[in-house]
Design a protein around this nucleic acid. Structure first.
Lengths: 197, 197
DNA sequence: ACGCCGATTTAACACTGTTAACTTGATGTA
DNA sequence: TACATCAAGTTAACAGTGTTAAATCGGCGT
């Protein structure tokens, strides 16, 4: 008989396969084209098998979303290790967020329910998101120690600026080249960070 | 026999009814809950009737989206008539955009494919959007006459700031009261407008 | 009375998420 | 060897989706 670990390993492999193909379909055809049956076909199983790994499509999407936030958090941790200057840190984190959205747009979409991606589980409940949030707030605090409310306000401003530019840059990508948008993004973030001083 | 106008009037009424119920369902249950059959039921017709007025769901959504942009443009025109100072104009237009998104979130959602709303017709192809865009760019130009590229850059910055704050404020509404977000919005827009000077 | 025409509906197709019921093959036991 | 058990996986079904072709039905003119 096969050992229990062996079974578990194969379980984790098919689980990973489900997540992978979901992202793959989303990347190529958009999230509205992602269906359980299509995923099942791709991993050579029938549809109900997918439900052995994820209780619902919603939960699958939530998993992918949190995977995205986790990835971003790891990037942030890496940046925090490399740079000590809070200004540099915040700038590099912003750039990392841009790069993430450009490299894996389908993940960014499911994180914020953009462009046909739709997960009913509230984003704000995500622990991963909370980790990211406090990570950024911490840095802002580290160079202007103010009240919780002021930090929250500044964090909201930073997030809005970054998120707004990313989503609009995606939307206008045929109308305004991404490199140009990125330049504006970097300038704006730099100005924002300077403004914190 | 009924006159042709009479027929046309009733046609336009049911057409308006379709649009109205679509928005109504979206407002109460979200865009992912809007279906042709549900709309048809609400206006006491069978599903195929809807297709007499809109060739596809996509086109219906596009209509609603453009209605939204048109509404916003009218607001902008009104503001331009009331105020002469470009700074005041841009500020009031920004506030109008905020108010619009708060009052009719379902429209704002379909305009930008947010939260389950999904229309495959590219937003950028909308003439109404173009009208709005040039309206804003015109104002920015009116107090800093620069090159087309610079104006486009500033417009992109303004739009990102506004759109980013609106979408995140919606997302965080349970976590951070809308009134507070609006205050931050007004402050940020004011700063942006000042910065143009 | 008949035929036409336009308005409207029914029925169908290929999908969707999701679940219950079934098959199938391998294993352990008498 | 024969039988029971059990897990893995499949089929089939339900209610819903967008969309379209075919059928119905009522009123009008001839």
């Amino acid at each position: 008989m096969e050992t229990l670990e062996r079974k578990q390993r194969s379980r984790e492999q098919t689980r990973a396969g489900i997540v992978l193909t979901a992202k793959d379909i989303a990347r190529r055809e958009g999230w509205q084209a992602v269906s359980i049956r299509k995923i099942a076909d791709a991993i050579d199983y029938s549809a109900p098998i997918v439900y052995e790994y994820f209780d619902s499509k919603d939960i699958l999407l939530d998993e992918i979303r949190n995977e995205g936030f986790r990835h971003l958090r790891l990037e942030y941790d890496r940046i925090k290790k490399v740079y000590r200057d809070p200004e540099k840190r915040l700038f590099e984190m912003s750039v990392a967020q841009w790069q993430f959205a450009v490299d894996q747009p389908e993940i960014y979409q499911v994180m914020y329910n953009l462009n046909g991606a739709f997960c009913t589980i509230p984003v704000c409940d995500s622990i991963e998101l909370e980790a990211i949030s406090s990570s950024i707030r911490e840095i802002i605090f580290s160079f202007i120690p103010k009240s919780k409310e002021s930090i929250q306000k500044l964090y909201f401003e930073w997030w809005s600026l970054s998120h707004g530019m990313i989503t609009l840059a995606m939307m206008l990508r045929d109308h305004q080249p991404l490199e140009q948008s990125e330049q504006v993004y970097r300038d704006s973030i730099r100005r924002f960070v300077r403004g914190l001083r």
